[in-house]
């Protein structure tokens, strides 16, 4: 029970338990499909939450990294005969390097400027993916080969459920470890006051860059998984709206709450599926959630809920 009392370890166990039990509750492949999409988004959100929630830096371009990962997995095997698994790794490394190169100048920026710089970066990636038709198939997208591991072709929602579940669990575990590391502590200091952190000898730029790169790699891996899972990708996966959705998931779940982010991803991915009758209002609802969360629920869904329960008991 000691482990459970550690909120982080406890949370990880709960997540593992949910992943283990969920398959018995899901009636058919469609629900597996939705849950897999939740898992893929959650993986990005766990990474993005490190950046937004812990380091206090916004990114409106993370879908760009997601898209690059997805296209690495699509383009490299199809056009250059690189095995899919190697493409996934190469994509992640490439995106990591790109994040270093881009991150260096733009992470010096603050607030609005950082938001717009990341947004511009995301749009440039989107433009590249939709304009380079010979490579990427253009706006109509392209098919993705199946992921093969040791000669075994991965397909079917059940296989993918466990892959994505495993990836999410590993990603969450890595993120939690990072938060407890010296980098994590430095980040929290940075979130509170960048200048104070700097005065206390924290190498602000290096820590910010580390988290930016880690979150970009998370997004790239999630993109690769999503590409192989769905078998088809379009540049929309790198689009502005997807970036916004990712940020909203972080915000809804609670900035700085890793598990909250996963809940946010689950709600925002699953909700439109169950509200298809009201699809016209989907965007209005998305916008409203963003505003209301930031005004009244600044801690996000999960932390607010937790606080309320606490308050009632004491």
């Amino acid at each position: 029970m000691a482990a459970l009392r550690q909120p982080r370890t406890g949370g990880l166990l709960v997540l593992a338990a949910i992943i283990a039990v969920l398959p018995f509750l899901l009636p058919n492949a469609y629900y597996f499909d939705v849950v897999i999409l939740v898992g893929i988004n959650a993986l990005v959100v766990v990474g993005l939450n490190l950046l937004i929630g812990y380091a206090g830096q916004i990114s409106l371009g993370h879908a760009g990294f997601f898209g690059l990962g997805a296209y690495a997995s699509a383009v490299l095997p199809a056009r250059f005969d690189i095995p899919p698994l190697a493409a996934l790794v190469l994509g992640a490394i490439g995106v990591g390097l790109l994040a270093v190169v881009i991150g260096r100048p733009i992470l010096r920026l603050k607030g609005h400027y950082l938001a717009v710089a990341t947004l511009g970066m995301g749009l440039l990636i989107f433009m590249l993916l939709s304009n380079e038709q010979d490579l990427t198939g253009g706006p109509d997208g392209m098919a993705v080969q199946r992921l093969t591991i040791l000669g075994y072709k991965l397909h079917g929602v059940h296989t993918w459920y466990w892959i994505v579940g495993g990836a999410l669990l590993t990603g969450t575990w890595l993120a939690l470890n990072l938060i407890d590391s010296p980098t994590g502590r430095a980040l929290r200091a940075l979130h509170d006051s960048e200048i104070a952190a700097q005065v206390n000898g924290v190498d602000v730029v290096r820590h910010k860059l580390t988290v930016f790169v880690i979150s970009a790699v998370f997004a790239s891996l999630a993109g690769s998984l999503s590409a192989h899972y769905s078998g088809f990708i379009t540049p929309n996966s790198a689009g502005f709206l997807h970036s916004i959705e990712l940020v909203t998931m972080v915000v809804l779940g609670g900035m700085g709450s890793t598990f909250g982010g996963i809940v946010g991803a689950a709600v925002l991915t699953a909700l439109p599926q169950f509200l298809t009758v009201f699809h016209e209002y989907e965007h209005a609802a998305l916008g409203l959630i963003m505003m209301v969360c930031m005004i009244y629920l600044r801690d996000g869904l999960l932390p607010s809920l937790r606080q309320r329960l606490h308050w009632r008991r004491s």
């Binding site: 949370g11 997540l15 509750l25 809940v263 606490h310």
Partner: peptide, 19 residues
């Protein structure tokens, strides 16, 4: 009650909602 249990409860609540 411990803090972690609260986390657990709300996560389960979320799962129940999806279910």
């Amino acid at each position: 009650m411990t803090r972690s249990f609260m986390g657990l409860r709300s996560v389960i609540a979320g799962a129940a909602l999806i279910a």
